[in-house]
Amino acid sequence: MSNMVTEILAFILTTSGWVLISSTIPTDYWKVSSLDGTVITTATFWSNLWKTCVTDSTGVSNCKDFPSMLALDGYIQACRGLMITAVCLGFFGAVFALVGMKCTKIGGSDQSKARTACIAGVNFILSGLCSLSACSLYAHRITSEFFNPMFVAQKYELGVALFIGWAGSILCILGGVILCFSIADSSTTSHTGYAYRGAESNVSSHPREYTQPMSQRSPPEYSSSSRVQHFDKNAYV
């Protein structure tokens, strides 16, 4: 029962993390223009993996999609690939988790369900690592430009999408690890219980016979025919 509760908790954590990672991709504010050193702000610049926008003081936004994928910076292309990979891995991990959990009626035997659930945990861990790498790479580019005194262009700060992505990554990794450990504990428990039942069945199937002490044993009785045969053999000798 405890293993089933642990699997359900791990599934909730991983699914929540996957939802957060998926919601990070279309989120607008991956980076926002910094207000450090400015007195009067007439516009706010912000962008994500797909477009760059500007919002004026009246609240009107004007966005422009990136014109060419090949002309993008390398870190944006890498972040796109990592985030899409994270979403795909999380989707397959959720499917495998539903098949491999003990509370579901699909998946075959307990051994096959345990193997499927372990694959789901690995998928969630890889999904969290991909999302964590993408958000960290994007944040490293923002912070390196911000603290670079030679960089004279517009400087940006970390957007809310990065924090959502980090939170989803941690949930996916944590839930995947819990799912893998719960499967390992359940398999160890099942093997131990099987060995104990086998030993008990062997003991019950071969009961030990009661042996009487030598002091309480009665002397063997010989029949008269055996005495006659014994004496006859000695007589011939």
Rank of each mutant, 00 (worst) to 15 (best):
D185P: 01
S186A: 13
S190M: 05
I178A: 09
E209V: 12
T189F: 07
A184Y: 03
S190I: 05
I183P: 00
Y194I: 06
Q212N: 04
L179C: 08
G198Y: 03
S186I: 00
Y196Q: 13
S182A: 15
T189V: 04
P207D: 06
I178V: 15
S182T: 04
E200M: 13
S187G: 08
V177G: 07
T192D: 04
E209F: 01
A195W: 01
P213E: 15
G193D: 06
A199Q: 10
I183T: 08
T189I: 03
P207R: 02
G176H: 06
E200Y: 12
I178F: 10
I178E: 00
F181L: 15
A195M: 07
S186H: 07
Y196N: 11
N202R: 12
Y210G: 01
C180F: 08
P213K: 14
H191L: 10
T188N: 03
G176L: 02
A199E: 00
S201Y: 10
Q212C: 07
S187L: 11
G193R: 14
S205M: 09
S201W: 09
Q212F: 09
Y194R: 14
F181E: 11
C180N: 11
R208T: 09
D185F: 06
P207S: 04
D185R: 10
T188L: 04
T192H: 08
S205G: 02
T188D: 02
L179E: 09
I183Y: 04
I183A: 06
T189D: 08
R208F: 05
I183K: 12
Y196M: 10
H191T: 10
R197E: 14
V203T: 09
G198T: 14
Y210Q: 07
V203M: 13
G176E: 03
E200R: 15
S201F: 10
S204P: 01
R208Q: 12
A195Q: 07
G193N: 14
T192E: 10
I178H: 01
E209I: 09
N202G: 13
A184W: 04
H191V: 08
I178T: 09
A195F: 04
S201D: 11
S187E: 14
R197P: 01
A199L: 06
G176D: 01
S186D: 10
I178Q: 03
N202C: 02
H206A: 13
E209T: 13
V203K: 06
A184I: 13
T188Y: 00
S204N: 12
E200G: 03
S182L: 02
Y194C: 07
V203C: 02
E200F: 12
F181C: 13
A195S: 06
S201L: 14
Y196L: 14
H191G: 05
N202W: 05
Y194H: 12
S201N: 13
A199R: 04
S205E: 06
P213F: 12
A195I: 11
V177W: 03
V177Q: 04
Y210E: 04
Y210T: 10
A199F: 11
T189L: 08
